[in-house]
């Protein structure tokens, strides 16, 4: 029902409950991504998320349309946090509602794949063992 970028904490549970939009939806699949305390063997203390204002919103809106075109979805939620985050904060919340469960699982997984590689967002980590922040590089 929404696609946006935010500096504020994301209330994943509230979003989940708000998603089932009609009695036609049998299945809601959600993904919630949290700031983890480790990454690639390094202990993480904080995470900074940079984005490209304007393009990010356009890319998310296009991604939502793309998902509706690929699966028979009844609702889509894509919310991405930016700015300074700390351990346990929600980075991203994605949820989709569909009449059927397979479409919902596939679409949620697809949206996460696309978010990782096609939306202008960049993560910079602070490690507890170092004072120099590190920009993440995809494999």
């Amino acid at each position: 029902m929404a696609t946006y970028i935010t500096n504020e904490a994301i209330a994943a549970g509230q979003r989940l409950d708000a998603l089932a939009p009609s009695h036609a939806a049998g299945a809601v699949v959600s993904f919630t991504g949290y700031v983890r305390d480790h990454n690639l063997g390094e202990a993480v203390s904080t995470l900074y998320l940079e984005h490209y204002p304007g393009m990010t919103e356009r890319a998310l809106a296009a991604l939502e349309i793309d998902a509706y075109a690929r699966w028979p979805l009844l609702a889509v939620d894509i919310i991405h946090r930016v700015g300074e985050l700390t351990l346990g904060d929600v980075i991203v919340f994605v949820a989709v509602a569909s009449a059927h469960r397979q479409a919902a699982f596939e679409a949620a997984s697809y949206l996460m794949d696309q978010l990782k590689t096609h939306i202008p967002l960049w993560k910079r980590e602070c490690h507890t063992a170092s004072t120099t922040p590190v920009w993440l590089i995809p494999h």
């Binding site: 996460m112 939306i119 967002l121 960049w122 920009w135 995809p138």
Partner: peptide, 28 residues
């Protein structure tokens, strides 16, 4: 990206274009 759409490096430029250069994205 050219005018806020991902593109290839050989994309032609027009006067007034917004061109963004950035490392691989790491959202999600």
């Amino acid at each position: 990206a050219r005018n806020q759409t991902l593109c290839s490096l050989d994309s032609a430029l027009c006067d007034g274009d917004e061109v963004a250069l950035f490392p691989p994205m790491t959202g999600g």
